[in-house]
Design a protein around this nucleic acid. Structure first.
Lengths: 179, 179
DNA sequence: TCATAATGGCTTACGTTGTTAGCCACTATG
DNA sequence: CATAGTGGCTAACAACGTAAGCCATTATGA
């Protein structure tokens, strides 16, 4: 998939506005069409169905996320900075974040290489160990997703929990006992 | 909320069967009713709306999950065992797991104390440190949820990633650097 | 014992959703 | 200048959650 242009891009932009402003139930074919001064069925001249439109929305989100993360890689000791950036992005775009992470990934709808690009900063921060990088990714996604879903008790200190996880995951393993 | 009985419990059981067999789009008021030899509007004599029915489904899932986790607490060095149990539960009931974790939590619809009961084994395994326990929970949820959403590349060694995360999270912090 | 209320079905119907079918105007191309 | 593609339109459909209101059965209490 190459980047979107023209009407397709306008549609995705309208969809994104609606999603971020009103959550998933505001993301309606008719609402998207309305916002473009168009009738809902006309959208099907550009996307085969709502799922494909959402996939494009998700792909755009991934690109943006990858750029954001690449920007913080520069710092020495990048893991805490990456964690902060991850959490910040998720809470800045909660509905888009949920959409991006809850749909089963369709790799064909993603621009070539975005997946690797988004993963690269974290992989480098983890010394090239993909297992550690995946664990760190899972931790960050888990924290963000549980926070967005209101899963932590109201008195939880989320900053402290993030710190605890980041500290644990960046330290080299000292006494592995899990076999 | 006290445990369900009678017709309500039958409805929830039917809903659960449908969800686990056919995923979220199979979970329809009409389908649930059909399965009980009933008409859809009759369901509203038992639940005010679909959301409340789903909440009951989720609550039942939490109870079951809590029981499962409590059963593996016995082992010394319980964190790896808990992680395995967590992943096993999620992959055994993928649709229910997603429903349980993706809805914003309504604490009123949960039986008294289930939340604490489900968290207790993990908290104990983390030496009573709630931040570490939350980090471990986030890691486990992140791993499970990314796996279910097909997020890891096909060649990823998920067992190794789980091990990497569990090892890191159970070791006492050696060189915290995240301030 | 019998009126009364609660319980749990039913049918009908409504608004909203994604989506299909088919028509038409404009534009670019041979 | 014929033709094909592009991108709108209207009308309509099936499936969904749900509201309204009717009716049979069962339990209750005077």
């Amino acid at each position: 998939m190459e980047p979107l242009t023209g009407r397709k891009a306008e549609i995705v932009a309208a969809a994104r506005d609606l999603l971020e402003a009103g959550g998933p139930e505001a993301l309606t074919m008719r609402a998207i069409a309305d916002r473009l001064g168009i009738q809902a069925p006309s959208l099907y001249k550009h996307f085969p169905d709502k799922d494909a439109l959402e996939a494009a929305l998700v792909a755009a989100g991934f690109v943006e996320q990858a750029e954001t993360f690449a920007a913080v890689t520069r710092s020495r000791n990048p893991l805490p900075a990456l964690a902060r950036a991850y959490r910040a992005w998720a809470t800045a775009h909660p509905h888009l974040y949920v959409l991006m992470t809850s749909r089963r990934l369709d790799r064909d709808s993603l621009p070539e290489g975005v997946e690797a690009a988004a993963a690269a900063p974290l992989l480098k921060a983890c010394g090239g160990d993909p297992n550690r990088a995946r664990a760190a990714w899972a931790f960050a996604h888990g924290m963000a997703s549980l926070e967005l879903a209101n899963r932590f008790p109201p008195d939880a200190d989320l900053d402290a929990a993030w710190r605890a996880g980041v500290d644990a995951l960046q330290a080299p393993p000292t006494t592995p006992r899990s076999t």
